[in-house]
């Protein structure tokens, strides 16, 4: 690109960078508060409204979290469900999206409309629960994965991406004696890494953040993922006093503020770690999948 080096252009660049920095700072300040809070003393949290630097740095809340195996265990569950769930998601999504990307496949439009219809109408909590129960999935990790095996949105992202691939590649492969499955596996998928990364991240974030299915479908506390524990800790303090049964608070006091913050930090950190690695693919993937031309 030819650089515009006029005065106005340079002023704009400076202002732009200043503005974006300010916006980023505004974004990050509350998050800094949470991080600072997770290291701060209870006294500071109770008496100061807002701060980003803890007066005295204490690792107590993190030590507390790791003192019992609940959080490590639930984090492992979350990681397992996220990895395996994302794999299942991608499998279901790809196998359905590939045929749907063939514009001349008879019946294709009917199926696409059927998919889109589910975006607008859903049966609701109880019927879905009864189906999950009927499938014998209750209290199994599969109940966190199978009922959300395909997100219609992601399905269509992948389908659109496949649709953009040059037909010739596939056709020549078929002429060479490759089956449809072989084409998908050896030609289409390797070329689809960007969209798979993007959609995979969507799915993974969904699994990582989901808590409601676990609450409803899993009755063994040992199987609860991290978000259930996190929510329980954060909500408990939210509801104290209002719905408070102080009888309970005599025995299990709501966790200290700093511990809540530490749990929040822990639950967000994995996403932030993974994110930059995927970010590049990500934009590319969504781009081709979502917007054509």
């Amino acid at each position: 690109m030819i650089r515009d080096t006029s005065m106005g252009s340079r002023i704009f660049d400076t202002l732009n960078i200043l503005f974006l920095s300010a916006f980023a700072l505004l974004t990050v300040l509350p998050f800094l508060y949470i991080i600072a809070g997770s290291f701060a003393s209870e006294k500071q949290l109770a008496t100061e409204a807002f701060f980003v630097i803890p007066k005295e740095v204490s690792l107590d809340s993190y030590r507390y979290i790791l003192s019992s195996n609940t959080i490590p265990r639930s984090a492992l569950v979350s990681i397992g469900v996220t990895l395996f769930g994302t794999f299942v998601n991608l499998f279901f999504t790809v196998t359905m999206a590939y045929p749907l990307s063939k514009k001349r496949l008879p019946g294709r439009n009917g199926i696409i409309n059927m998919v889109i219809f589910t975006m607008i109408f859903s049966g609701g909590l109880i019927p879905t629960f009864l189906v999950v129960k009927g499938m014998g999935l209750l209290d199994r990790y599969a109940s966190l994965i199978l009922p959300i095996a395909i997100s219609p949105f992601n399905l269509i992202v992948v389908k659109s991406f496949f649709q953009e691939m040059p037909e010739e590649l596939e056709e020549s492969a078929i002429i060479d004696g490759c089956s449809r499955y072989g084409v998908l596996w050896r030609i289409v998928l390797p070329l689809s890494m960007p969209v798979l990364a993007a959609v995979g991240l969507f799915y993974a974030v969904g699994h990582w953040n989901s808590f409601f299915s676990a609450l409803i479908y899993l009755s063994s506390p040992k199987k609860w993922p991290l978000q259930v524990i996190l929510r329980q800790m954060v909500m408990l303090a939210q509801f104290t006093a209002a719905n408070m049964d102080s009888f309970d608070s005599d025995f299990v006091r709501p966790p200290e503020q700093s511990i809540k913050m530490a749990v929040i930090v822990l639950s967000v950190v994995p996403i932030l770690f993974v994110y930059p690695f995927i970010q590049r693919h990500f934009t590319k993937g969504v781009m081709i999948g979502a917007i054509k031309g």
């Binding site: 909590l125 109880i126 409601f212 329980q232 408990l236």
Partner: peptide, 14 residues
């Protein structure tokens, strides 16, 4: 059967 108190009523109705 333990149910977190924050969603107890949902779970009960289900």
């Amino acid at each position: 059967i333990w149910v977190p108190n924050t969603t107890y009523e949902d779970k009960m109705n289900i």
